[in-house]
Design a protein around this nucleic acid. Structure first.
Lengths: 194, 194
DNA sequence: CTGATAATAGTACCAAGTGCTAATATCGGA
DNA sequence: TCCGATATTAGCACTTGGTACTATTATCAG
């Protein structure tokens, strides 16, 4: 018992969290205990085996037909998407997102969530933001769960533009609004961008 | 030979592509061939086994997840500042800032640089973005050095608002412009924000 | 000192493979 | 029609990273 069971289990949780790809064997070495001990720990903490962990990580990102952009490029967690129509993502405000002084989320995270959602909702190989107008309606605090909803409002086929409106709420209260004018590369315009 | 080897292999590629979670066994059933045939096919097409496929999908998404975190501190290096007047920062576009597909910098990093500069230039305890209008003039690429310059254009003492204009350039060419309306908490208004 | 808790050891088993050899099909051309 | 090439199937040993279970040994605390 290096530092008691509890302490080890806390470390185990932490270690696996930021490296789900580690095997029991490696964990046993890390904590200088036997593999069986690691397994008992996982059992108690109901942490699934390596393969299941990996599968979980993988399927989270693979879920549904997010073809336009790999889900990975989205800030926040995508919960719903209908390409070229709408998309919803969730973003939990953690300590790394706030100003330490006042616990208020820094604006660029809200923008990042909204902007990446605007990119993701577009059903095309390439989507870039051209212009946008933002309104930070209400400060967002540590621990808040921000739900961003994006709607495609208009498409201009000739100019390859798509207009997306994003509204972010915390407990049904609007905290952020943004209009995004997006450039999209459809088949015809591929390769035009230098 | 239901439809020739080639045809089956094409289908195999397709099937695995949009469901990397399928086992050889399931594939064998699907094409009504033996498991061995599926394995030979994978071998010829150099498609890795199920576990490796899943691992690949997982690590791709995991890397991006990790990558999106350090957004908090990497917002450029301040090189000059005159409080309530102007500020300049430099931001080098690295691989973690771009879309892998086209090497173009993700918009929120440009916004983050500009926005944090707008916050920094304000000589007050608290500064928050209220509204902003952005224009992504030209795509920024991997390796580019973005120089953002912020100017305070106007102050509205009564409403506690400060207006900041930010222009970002790469090799003297404008790539981004933004107008920011900032809320500031001066002595008089401290604690008003709930 | 004795129980309880914790840790270790060992066994059988599983899924989803790889790598290999060997036996059959099946087809297409001389 | 028969022959050889290609394609397919079968079988076996072995691998990883586990589960599930039992048995033994430490270790600590009252």
């Amino acid at each position: 018992m290096k530092r008691s069971k509890k302490e080890r289990q806390q470390q185990l949780i932490h270690t696996i969290k930021n490296n789900p790809f580690i095997t029991d064997d490696a964990l046993a070495n890390l904590f200088t205990v036997s593999v069986q001990t690691v397994r008992l720990d996982r059992l108690e903490l109901s942490i699934p085996e390596l393969r299941e962990r990996i599968k979980h990580v993988a399927s989270k990102s693979f879920e549904d037909e997010v073809r336009s952009l790999p889900l990975s490029d989205v800030i926040g967690e995508m919960v719903d998407i209908e390409l070229d129509e709408r998309a919803i993502s969730i973003f939990d405000v953690k300590s790394e997102h706030i100003f330490q002084r006042n616990q208020i989320a820094r604006g660029h995270h809200l923008f990042a969530q909204a902007n990446s959602l605007a990119v993701a909702v577009i059903n095309d190989e390439l989507a870039l933001t051209v212009k946008s107008t933002l309104s930070f309606v209400k400060p967002v605090k540590l621990g808040d769960r921000v739900i961003a909803k994006a709607f495609v409002t208009r498409k201009d086929q000739e100019k390859n533009r798509t207009f997306v409106e994003v509204t972010s709420t915390v407990e049904n209260e609007i905290v952020f609004e943004g209009q995004f004018e997006m450039f999209r590369a459809n088949e015809a315009s591929k390769g035009e961008l230098k």
